[in-house]
Design a protein around this nucleic acid. Sequence first.
DNA 1: TTATATAATTTTGTATCCAATTTTACTAGA
DNA 2: TCTAGTAAAATTGGATACAAAATTATATAA
Lengths: 226, 226
Amino acid sequence: MSSFQLEAITLGEGVNAVEAVTQRLRQAILDGSLSGGQVLRQETLAQQLGVSRLPIREAIRQLHSEGLVQMSVHRGAIVTALSPEDIREIYDIRVGLETTALRLALPHLSPAILKRANELMKKTETTSDADSWSEANWQFHLTLYAPAQRPRMIELIRTMHDNVGRYLRVYPALLQQQKNSHQEHQQLLAACQAQDEGRALQLLRQHLEGAGERLAAYIAQQRSAK
Amino acid sequence: MSSFQLEAITLGEGVNAVEAVTQRLRQAILDGSLSGGQVLRQETLAQQLGVSRLPIREAIRQLHSEGLVQMSVHRGAIVTALSPEDIREIYDIRVGLETTALRLALPHLSPAILKRANELMKKTETTSDADSWSEANWQFHLTLYAPAQRPRMIELIRTMHDNVGRYLRVYPALLQQQKNSHQEHQQLLAACQAQDEGRALQLLRQHLEGAGERLAAYIAQQRSAK
DNA sequence: TTATATAATTTTGTATCCAATTTTACTAGA
DNA sequence: TCTAGTAAAATTGGATACAAAATTATATAA
């Protein structure tokens, strides 16, 4: 049960192989094509993607630095499988980073930005499939953080978000749980609109802690089931 | 003025080259042997460290993910030179991560841990050279965060700390500025001892923001001077 | 002299080959 | 049948060789 198929990358026109491989593998992990625990054989990936092992190795190292892959010397790489504790920790990190981003963004949240956030929030209420809900939800949060003008911080948040977000695709049942957070989104947006920093940060923290706890509990349950 | 000399690594006994090279290069960047803007030629490094270019490439990619090196395709890598804005952003990230770590650690700060923190704080007051002050200062903060039991979070904090901390070695004048923060350390430790979460987090945030602003201002001044 | 085009050089990116290590399969002995 | 030891296979780590791109140097024309 460790079989998978990845489409070969098309390179040429200044596209370098490492970048292309990294994106392809990251995508496969995030959309669940490669799930936690999956062994990544260099030769297999090289043949499937139509490159040599070298770009594969560098791509794996890159994904390792993003937390998506675990490496061990002479034993190869596997897709990271997060334990419930891992998930709680990643959400703790998100709380730290995202409340800081929101605090810095809050003074710069213009009516136009809040309007866009509101539209994205409505989108999450109407979409049903995991992919578009995930995307809209991420864009909603990103819209609130972007005015902070902190590219490194945003990138870190994105990495953490991706690392836990992939489980939404793996376990569709989680989507329903997360959709219960619509009310929290509304309250958060209202607090931002009112420029109520204390309340906005508290709501965001609760929102994330709740989502993290639900995901961790679900993973724990899945583990004990098998 | 782009010359430097690195001692060859000794590998063998299960030591893999990539790891050894990564540590050697990281060390060289953190202690100022390789300073911001320095171009990293793969062939040069390979010869100096006594390995082929391949481990060098993977090490550079690793350091890139830590923010210490910037890569651009077909143009090579340079040691990251932080702008004042970069430094402020990294300190903003540190505020988010470190206040969260301290909040989670606070309930677990035992008398023994507080005693150790107090000893490390005293050490920072007595040492004079940049190296031992930096180390003691870092250990002081780490001691307060470690009981949070969040290894990923600690690792992220360490990465951010290293990235800005290296400037203390490059610009010794900064050391005197930072030593003015002793009083802040004392107040922080007192708030932790009193389990006063609100005050402890506020002090830590001010402590970091102050240090960040001083460093950013110094870098800005250095820039305009030349 | 300056600007532009072009060739030479340097440097990085990738593929292939060999070495070192780990894993698996097999054999022998109790 | 089980275990320990050993050999074979598979797999990763690293070095060398070659291709592609960028940089530098050179030459030519305005």
